[in-house]
């Protein structure tokens, strides 16, 4: 299985779309935004823009990666019949889905780490070792609901609709979750939508950690709850998708 995971990752790195949208975009936007607003200081938390933006763009990159590396490849493999070929090897259905999950999670790391690295190198962001570990750990494991969502999309839709569906899901979650614009400047209805979304809870955990505070229980429960619900749906969708037609 480690070999299978390795191959899954290799093919994504060869995918230009993945590298551009998922790895280069968040870093590029971080560099752009932090140059524009990096030195502004948030009044409630006292944090510099460069730090808040680091969390936002890392969250966006991780979110994009987790959905892009799951939904479309999975839909393609189902349609192309590769999945059927796998089903007649000794690899079990569980091995296949666990591989997908692990590979998608590992693929989150490049965008996450590169944004943090860019923040350190260009904006001289400095956090304690514990904060870095907490931030990266939480932002990494916190992508589980999004990987699950990607697998749901990939299990239910054919590749040509899975692609736009994943894009809409990804940008929708990023925009409404406050990753591109702070919640404070949104109208009230959008704000209440944002608060119900896993992407907002997910990014909030990061924002709290960089502010030197413990994440709010509601955020952690939000991500966990979405993780459980979407994970369960992904299992159902996966089973439906792998029953032989």
């Amino acid at each position: 299985m480690p070999h299978y995971i390795k191959i899954e990752m290799l093919r994504m790195f060869r995918n230009k779309r993945y590298v551009i949208f998922v790895v280069a975009f968040p870093v590029g936007f971080y560099l752009l935004y932090s140059n524009l607003w990096g030195s502004q200081v948030d009044k409630t938390t006292g944090l510099k823009g460069s730090v808040i933006l680091m969390v936002s763009m890392a969250a966006y990159g991780a979110l994009a990666s987790s959905m892009m590396s799951s939904a479309v490849p999975w839909a393609q493999e189902r349609q192309s019949g590769w999945l059927r070929q796998l089903q007649i090897t000794p690899l079990s259905g569980w091995a296949i889905i666990v591989t997908k999950l692990v590979a998608s999670l590992l693929l989150v790391l490049p965008s996450l780490l590169l944004v943090c690295l860019a923040a350190v190198l260009t904006q001289h962001v400095s956090l304690s070792v514990g904060e870095w570990a907490g931030l990266i750990g939480a932002m990494w494991i916190g992508t589980i609901p999004f990987v699950a969502l990607g697998l749901i999309i990939g299990s239910l839709l054919p590749p040509d609709t899975a692609q736009p569906a994943a894009m809409v899901g990804m940008f929708g979650l990023a925009l409404l979750g406050g990753l591109w614009f702070p919640l404070e400047i949104m109208p009230a209805t959008m704000r209440s939508i944002a608060r119900a979304l896993p992407s907002y809870d997910y990014a909030s955990i990061g924002w709290r950690i960089v502010a030197g505070e413990a994440p709010q229980l509601s955020s952690v429960l939000g991500v966990l709850g979405w993780g459980v619900v979407l994970g369960a749906l992904a299992v159902v969708a996966y089973r439906r998708a792998t029953v032989r037609a």
């Binding site: 070999h3 191959i7 290799l10 093919r11 060869r14 493999e77 192309s80 019949g81 999945l83 000794p90």
Partner: peptide, 28 residues
């Protein structure tokens, strides 16, 4: 027993030897 199914697809983006290597590792 191993089979080649009608229109069985391939995993896009991988090389020939990598794909055969993947199947190689699945068998006892």
């Amino acid at each position: 027993i191993a089979a080649m199914l009608q229109d069985a697809g391939m995993m896009p983006g991988v090389r020939v030897a990598e794909l055969v290597g993947l199947a190689h590792r699945a068998y006892p």
